[in-house]
Design a protein around this nucleic acid. Structure first.
Length: 277
DNA sequence: AGACGTACCTGACCGC
DNA sequence: TGCGGTCAGGTACGTC
């Protein structure tokens, strides 16, 4: 589910609902998600006040007033919601809950358990924060930077922009969407796409920005922290549309697999042959 | 070094 | 109805 727009939407929603709140209790319904919950998680969290909830790449950072900071990831199927205690109906895969000072519950639900919550000071968390590229919506991500970064890579352009090293936050869906907008074949080598860095830069920023404005995309079980659904999925130009007509040229959208993931593209608008080498 | 495959885990869906 | 196979938005690690 969650790529940058979805994580950003969750961060904004949680921030509105939880910032400034003290945590009265921390309930762990199992010992681990992707990683074991830290032994001292409850000790560090109970009684602390959540100062802010922010996003870095696809990670969520919960800053506490005791100097600690939690680093969480939604994985592929994670959701975070804040609900009134009276409305809370426990579900399978509600792995971690915070009881807030006003009685509401923060619920971290994740069927596949690719998500996690760690203390940011843990080495696992540090490892993941290292090696991250610039935020796509920051000034660090410039067309000049992108051009230089692309020139260094031989891998397919789609793999490169999804890799989190060149730029963060772009996952499988928005990689396909950005490449369609930039009219670049997902199969071309990143270095060969360098001349089109300006166009790709604009495409990435535009698609992420529009998706954030739409509250993210709701596929399968993604929901915002307030329970509302995102609706950017209705604006996909290529993702999940194989066989359907291209919105620009009407020729059928095609699908292929790259590094084990589905890629969607328009062979007419994103020609490979004319642009390789 | 870089590119690929695989693993982690559950659920939904499809065809038989 | 039930079974097996396939697929799913992410990341890290092993292997050539």
């Amino acid at each position: 589910m969650p790529e940058l727009p979805e994580v950003e939407t969750v961060a904004i929603g949680l921030s509105r609902q939880m910032a400034g709140m003290q945590v009265r209790d921390c309930i762990l319904n199992r010992p681990n998600m992707r990683f074991a919950f830290p032994d001292d998680l409850q000790e560090k969290v109970i009684g602390a006040r959540i100062e802010s909830i922010t996003r870095r790449a696809k990670y969520l950072r919960f800053a506490l007033d005791n100097g600690e900071s939690l680093l969480a990831h939604l994985g592929m199927s994670g959701t975070m919601r804040v609900v009134e205690a009276a409305d809370y109906a426990p579900r399978k895969h509600d792995h971690l809950l915070f009881e807030l000072e006003d009685g509401r519950l923060f619920v971290f639900h994740d069927p596949r358990r690719f998500g996690f919550m760690l203390l940011e000071s843990q080495s696992e968390a540090q490892k993941m924060l290292n090696n991250l590229g610039p935020e796509p919506l920051s000034a660090d991500f410039s067309p000049e930077y992108l051009e230089k970064a692309l020139l260094k890579r031989q891998m397919p352009i789609k793999t490169a922009i999804m890799g989190q090293r060149l730029v963060v936050g772009v996952g499988n869906i928005y990689a396909s969407e950005a490449l369609f907008r930039a009219e670049l074949s997902p199969e071309m080598k990143a270095c060969d796409a360098a001349p089109y860095a300006g166009k790709l830069h604009s495409a990435i920023i535009a698609v992420l920005g529009e998706a954030i404005a739409s509250g993210g995309s709701t596929l399968r079980d993604y929901v915002r922290s307030d329970g509302d659904l995102g609706y950017f999925q209705h604006h996909f130009a290529v993702y999940g549309r194989s066989g359907e007509p291209c919105l620009r040229c009407k020729s059928p959208i095609e699908a292929l697999r790259q590094a084990g993931r589905s890629t969607f593209f328009c062979p007419q608008c994103q020609p490979f042959s004319s642009r390789k080498t």
